[in-house]
């Protein structure tokens, strides 16, 4: 039993070494990726950090409320996505504007099951869309928490927030569950297709 474990560890490390060397070769062949700055915003408890960790394929079971922000880089479709997840607590929303500069895509996350706060989240979104520094920036709205029975469908949220009145930029609403990962990839595909033209 014991020798078997030792042997396994050895095999594992050797294979890791190979993988490491192979990844080096791969890196040599490919040019460095184009960097993209993506901002994740939304009310507290919308699921921004869960979404971030889901995108980075990290464990999502120990998440705590975000004080300040988290940042992660993810490789996707030849892009290096720098994702900024900013805390959504009311107290720190005034700080959001410090992160607007040079944003390529805005992802706005909504808790679809928290109907009581639809108005609040709509207001915050409207304010974001009025920001000069974010003018013309494509916006993806994630109607999150679709795994909950009480979640409102994306169409209902789009209607409630009057999304169809957005004319100054490309936008999309995508229903998803950051918990299960459903719909997240579809949203990110949209992001990669619609980021600012200069990046392509």
């Amino acid at each position: 039993m014991h020798t078997a474990t030792g042997w396994h560890v050895l095999c594992h490390t050797v294979s890791q070494t190979w993988r490491g060397l192979l990844s080096i070769l791969r890196k040599l062949k490919n040019a460095p990726d184009q960097e993209v700055r993506i901002l994740l915003l939304g009310l507290d408890n919308a699921g921004k950090t869960t979404l971030l960790k889901q995108l980075a394929s990290e464990d999502i079971s120990h998440i705590t409320p975000t004080q300040g922000f988290n940042i992660k880089s993810v490789q996707s479709q030849g892009f290096k996505l720098n994702l900024w997840d900013i805390g959504g607590q009311r107290k720190i929303r005034p700080y959001w504007r410090n992160y607007f500069e040079n944003t390529d895509v805005l992802i706005y996350v909504i808790d679809s099951a928290d109907r009581k706060r639809f108005e609040e989240t709509g207001q915050e979104l409207a304010e974001l869309l009025d920001e000069e520094k974010l003018s013309g920036v494509p916006v993806l709205i994630f109607a999150n928490k679709q795994d909950l029975l009480t979640a409102a469908p994306a169409t209902e949220i789009a209607e409630g927030l009057n999304l169809h009145t957005i004319r100054d930029r490309v936008w999309q609403i995508q229903s998803c569950s950051a918990l299960s990962g459903e719909g997240v990839q579809d949203g990110m595909n949209w992001v990669c297709k619609n980021m600012n033209a200069k990046k392509k």
Binding site: H2, T3, G6, W7, V9, L10, T13, V14, Q16, T17, G20, L21, I24, K27, L28
Partner: peptide, 24 residues
């Protein structure tokens, strides 16, 4: 940078071989 990384990986492999021999 990558050569340094490669040396690091190979070093790690030898260490783990030594560790295996030692524990077994």
């Amino acid at each position: 940078l990558l050569i340094c990384l490669a040396i690091h990986y190979i070093q790690k492999m030898f260490l783990s071989i030594w560790h295996y021999l030692h524990t077994t």
